[in-house]
Write a protein that binds this DNA or RNA. Structure first.
Lengths: 257, 257
DNA sequence: CATCCTTTCCATACGCTGTATGGTTATGTA
DNA sequence: TACATAACCATACAGCGTATGGAAAGGATG
C-alpha cells in the first residue's frame, strides 16, 4: 500500500535508536506528572517521542504494560532511611511508613493507578517492605503478628493516600463543606457527629494530611505495642504492662473469623 | 434526515415511560455486578433497557453521573447494626467497621470505582459514619481524637478493601507466590522477611481476609484505647493503665508536622 | 377543537481511544 | 551475498462518550 518513494518507515540508522523501554516510560511519567493520567494515550506518548504510535508496541506489549512500568518506576524510587539502631522500633516503623507514603505521594497523578493495580503491585510491595518487618522484629513480635501488623499498616497507608491524592490542596478544605453538610442533616440523625463537629468548630476541623498521618501512626504503634506486650515483657524490653488487657477489658466477645 | 415513514422515535405512549434514573441505575448495577465495571458502557446499558443510547442522557447528564449514582446506591445500602449498649465501645466500633466493609464488599466490581471517587464520596462517608463517632464517644475520647481515630479507621478499611477486591478468591493464594518471590531475592536482601516467611511456612502464610481484618481491628481498638487512657481513667471507666507510656516509651522524638 | 411547549426518545455523526495487520528498511549473522 | 530479524510506519477497525438535531406524544392554553 505504501508508495515506494516515501521517506518514512524502516529501521533507524545504527546508534540512533529512538526508542527503548526506559525512554518510553520516562516520557510517560513526564506526561502523567505534568498533565494527569488521562493525558497519557499511546498517540500522545508516541508524539512526544517523535514516533509512530505503533512503534511503542515493539518495546511494551500494550498500554497496561506502560502503566505497570510506571508503577515499577515509582516503587524503585522508594528509599527507606538507614534503620539506625539508636531510635526505637516504633520510630523505625514510623519512618518506614513515612518513606512509603512519600514515595507514592511524589507522583500524585499516578498514585490512584498504582493503588488500583494492587493485585499486580502487591507482589512488589511484599518484597519492598523489609524495613517494616525489621522494625517489628526488633519490637519482639512473633512472626504471625509481624505479618498482620505490616498488612494492616500498609493497607492503612494505601487508604490514606487514596484520600490524600484525591484532593488537590495539601490542606483539604473540609471544614466549611462538612459544616454545611452537617447543618443540613435531619434533626437527631447523627447526634454524636453534630456534637463533635460543633465542639471542634471550623478551626478545629481544618484538616491537615501530615498531622492526620502522624495521629494514625501513633494509634498504630500503640496498638501494636499493646498486642505484643506479653511477648515483649518476657524479653524484658518493656517493663510496664497491661495495655492488652485495657484493650480487651470490656471486649470479651471478639470474634476473629 | 429521518424518513417520515419510520416507526422509531417520538415520545412513548402514556404510562409506559421506559426510563427513569432508578431504572437506569438498577440496570447499570446489574451489569457491573454480573460482568464487571468495564462492561458498563452507555450503549450496553441502553441496550439492556431496549432504548437508544442517547435516551439515557435525558435522565443522567453523563457516564460519570451513572457511576456516582451507583456509589450512592451502595452507600444507601449501608446498614449498621443496632448499637446495643450491652457491648463495649470497642465491639461497637468493630461492628461498625465490619458493616462498612461488608457494604462495600457486596459489589466488588464497584468497590474500586467507589474508592477512587473518594473526593466525591468522602462527603457521603462523613455523614454515614455516625456509628463510629458514637462508639468512640462512648469510649470517652475527646472530640479531636474521635475525628482522628475515625479518619484512621476509615482510611484503613478503604485500603483493606482495595486489596480485597483486587483479588478474586476470598482466600488469596499468596503463599506460593510469595515463597517463590522470596526465594528469588538476592542473598541478604531482606533477611527479616525471609526469616519471617520461613518461620511461618506455606500453611502459616495462607492469607484469609476475614482474619486479617479482625487482626487489624484488634490493633486499632488497642491503639485507640491506649491513646485515650488518661481521659478514660479520669472517668473511672478503666482502672489499669500505662499503655500510652508503653507506646511512647522509647519514642521521645515523635514529630507530628 | 386547534395550537404551542415540553418531554422523551431516536438517528446520525464526530473525534477519540487501543491496537491488529502488514508493509518497508537497516542491521547483525552466516 | 543472502537472509532472518528488529525497528519503524501507514492504514484501518471496532468501540467509546456524547454533541446535535429531528420526530412524536402529552399537557396546557386559546
Amino acid at each position: 500500500m505504501v508508495k515506494a518513494g516515501k521517506r518514512s518507515g524502516g529501521r533507524p540508522r545504527a546508534g540512533e535508536e529512538r526508542l527503548s523501554r526506559e525512554a518510553i516510560l520516562t516520557a510517560a511519567l513526564r506526561i502523567v506528572d505534568d498533565e494527569g493520567i488521562d493525558a497519557l494515550t499511546m498517540r500522545r506518548l508516541a508524539g512526544t517521542l517523535g514516533v509512530n504510535p505503533m512503534s511503542l508496541y515493539h518495546h511494551l506489549p500494550n498500554k497496561a504494560a506502560v502503566l505497570a512500568g510506571l508503577a515499577e518506576l515509582v516503587f524503585a524510587s522508594l528509599e527507606f532511611p538507614d534503620p539506625g539502631d539508636a531510635v526505637s522500633w516504633q520510630e523505625q516503623l514510623k519512618d518506614a511508613a513515612r518513606a512509603y507514603r512519600n514515595a507514592l505521594r511524589a507522583h500524585p497523578n499516578l498514585a490512584l493507578q498504582i493503588l488500583s493495580d494492587t493485585s499486580a503491585v502487591s507482589a512488589v510491595v511484599v518484597v519492598t517492605v523489609e524495613p517494616f518487618y525489621r522494625a517489628l522484629d526488633r519490637g519482639g513480635l512473633p512472626a504471625r503478628q509481624i505479618v498482620e501488623a505490616v498488612n494492616t499498616l500498609v493497607d492503612f497507608i494505601h487508604g490514606f493516600l487514596l484520600g490524600e491524592v484525591a484532593v488537590r490542596a495539601e490542606t483539604f478544605d473540609l471544614a466549611p463543606d462538612l459544616l454545611s453538610r452537617v447543618a443540613e442533616l435531619p434533626e437527631g440523625k447523627a447526634p454524636t457527629l453534630v456534637r463533635v463537629v460543633s465542639e471542634l468548630g471550623a478551626d478545629g476541623l481544618a484538616y491537615d494530611f501530615d498531622s492526620g498521618f502522624e495521629s494514625a501512626l501513633a494509634i498504630f504503634t500503640a496498638g501494636i505495642a499493646a498486642g505484643t506486650t506479653n511477648a515483649v515483657r518476657s524479653t524484658g524490653t518493656v517493663s510496664a504492662a497491661t495495655s492488652v488487657d485495657i484493650a480487651n477489658q470490656t471486649d470479651p466477645s471478639a470474634n476473629p473469623a
